[in-house]
Amino acid sequence: MTNDKQTHNNLPNLLRMIEQITGYFKSYPQDYAVDHIADHIQKFWEPRMRREILEHAAAGGEGLSELAKLAVKKVRV
């Protein structure tokens, strides 16, 4: 069995999650989508997860869609 403790990087997982959430809300008008993506993350992501995605966004946000980037700006820890 593998033990990926030493190599575990949760960021790709968080990026996939946020893009999935964005994928749902992008069908709505942009302002609504941005608010609701941010609200979803605020309500359902534990602070460690929010902190990590905020730090990633602050570092350029590679892999984040434009809609997700706008939403992350509204997320607080």
């Binding site: 990926d4 575990h8 949760n10 309500k43 359902f44 534990e46 460690r48 997860m49």
Partner: peptide
Amino acid sequence: PGLRIPNMFDAAL
């Protein structure tokens, strides 16, 4: 909000 089960696994790792 706290960690969901899969988030717990990720945080553990």
